[in-house]
């Protein structure tokens, strides 16, 4: 019996819910670490997520998957943080640093340094790539977590993965050329 699955969530008391939430912490931490890269910032995000979730436990719909619900709370916090950061950047620069070519030149990405490459992706694409590629959510679950249509999930996934591929490919090619 997996705590948090639909068949149990309906009959859970407050204490059971809390235990089920604790069991999800490792997954929340992994996702947040991949999103933000910095371990302390990631745990801060998870802590905010836990505090907000517990204050809104009454909003959790029994019969839905607890993990998806927690990811949705975390995602909303993450996006509002990312927007604030973006606004701050926009204030000081004409263009948000969103162009991968420029970023790839300034940040040295090694083929295996996935953590760094991810940070170059726009926040929305990064979230989709991670929810599906790392946390193994289905497309529908990812759409529910992000509150967008499944088509949007697909296009973000497609763009995100292609960009990641170019980033890591570009580096591989540069290294090849250097070797020659």
């Amino acid at each position: 019996m997996a705590v948090g699955d639909s068949e149990t969530a309906g009959t859970m008391g407050q204490d059971d819910m809390r235990r089920a939430v604790v069991a999800e912490i490792p997954h929340l931490r992994r996702y947040a670490r991949a999103l933000l890269r910095d371990a302390t910032a990631a745990d801060d995000l998870v802590q905010d997520c836990l505090e907000r979730s517990l204050s809104r436990l009454h909003l959790f719909r029994p019969g839905t998957r607890l993990r998806s619900w927690l990811f949705a709370v975390l995602h909303n916090l993450f996006i509002s943080q990312a927007r604030t950061a973006q606004r701050r950047r926009s204030d000081s620069m004409a263009e948000p640093p969103d162009t991968p070519v420029e970023a790839a030149q300034t940040v040295r990405i090694e083929a295996r340094d996935m953590a760094r490459a991810l940070q170059i992706l726009p926040a929305e694409q990064r979230a989709v790539v991670l929810l599906i590629g790392l946390e193994d959510l289905s497309y529908q679950e990812a759409a529910d977590v992000l509150g967008v249509p499944i088509g949007t999930v697909m296009s973000r996934l497609s763009r995100g993965r292609e960009r990641l591929r170019q980033l890591t490919d570009g580096v591989a090619q540069t290294q090849l050329r250097r070797v020659k």
């Binding site: 490792p26 992994r30 991949a34 590629g133």
Partner: peptide
Amino acid sequence: QRLVLHATFDKVL
């Protein structure tokens, strides 16, 4: 990419 994601972040679990 899927494999590298897991190799990079599964240690957090």
